[in-house]
Amino acid sequence: MSGLHQTLTLIKKDVLLELRQQYAFYGILLYIISTVFVINMMMGQPEEQIWNALFWVVQLFVSVNAIAKSFMQESRGRLLYFYSLVHPRNFIAAKLLYNILLMSVMSIITLVSCMVFLGNPVTKFWYFIGVVMLGGISLSLLFTMLAAIAAQANQNAALMAIMGFPIIMPLLMLLASVARTAFVTVYQPGLSNMFILLGGMDVLIVGLAMILFPFLWKD
């Protein structure tokens, strides 16, 4: 079986599990809507800068809840079974791609929820959509790598949040800065450098995952 076929088969397996265990998806959906609704009850419709900050904070917690289960739902016996069948790089590649797909869906749901309950201060809609999708990809890649590490520590989800805090803060600040252009009509200097930095971080995370995960899986 080729590496591409192994990766696609693992992605299909995760999609089928998600469709069969729909309670997990609906639980995250309820979390998104209830969180945004509570913000609306407390603040109404905030101004642009606060709206932007709140959106990315909600995205952060959604990504933790959505991606933590990618490895936490895999038992030790199942991981051992996969270890005997597929290459570890194909396994982590499938997890990365599946979580990108999942987080893209969650990002759109979060955006729609925020616009419904918190208003729509975005002036450059399609630009903001693009930033949201890029942000969802970055968050999914980062937390997938952290979930893989935490899975080797007795499935400790708290470890993922602890390890991710020093890394996620600069990423969130970068995403908020890039997204700020969607709320104003003037050009923001240094925007191209921010996109390059964001892309470089994503490439670095993927590279680290491909290099480190085979050693993690051996343990």
Rank of each mutant, 00 (worst) to 15 (best):
S2T: 12
L8G: 08
R20Y: 04
Q21D: 09
Q22P: 01
T35F: 00
T35S: 15
I39Y: 02
N40W: 02
M42W: 14
G44T: 05
Q49F: 07
I50F: 15
V57W: 15
V57R: 06
V58R: 07
L60H: 11
F61W: 12
N65K: 11
A66P: 04
A66H: 05
I67A: 06
E74D: 15
Y83F: 12
P88L: 09
L97G: 09
Y98P: 00
I109R: 01
S113F: 01
M115C: 13
L118G: 04
G119V: 03
G119R: 08
P121V: 07
W126E: 13
I129F: 11
V132F: 00
L134Q: 08
L134D: 03
L134I: 13
L142G: 07
F143K: 03
T144L: 06
M145S: 13
M145N: 11
L146E: 02
A147E: 04
A150S: 15
A161T: 14
A161Q: 13
F165Q: 15
P166H: 03
L175P: 03
A176T: 12
V178A: 07
V178W: 00
N193D: 14
M194T: 12
I196Y: 07
I196M: 14
L198V: 13
G200N: 10
I205V: 15
A209N: 08
M210N: 03
I211R: 12
L216E: 02
K218E: 07
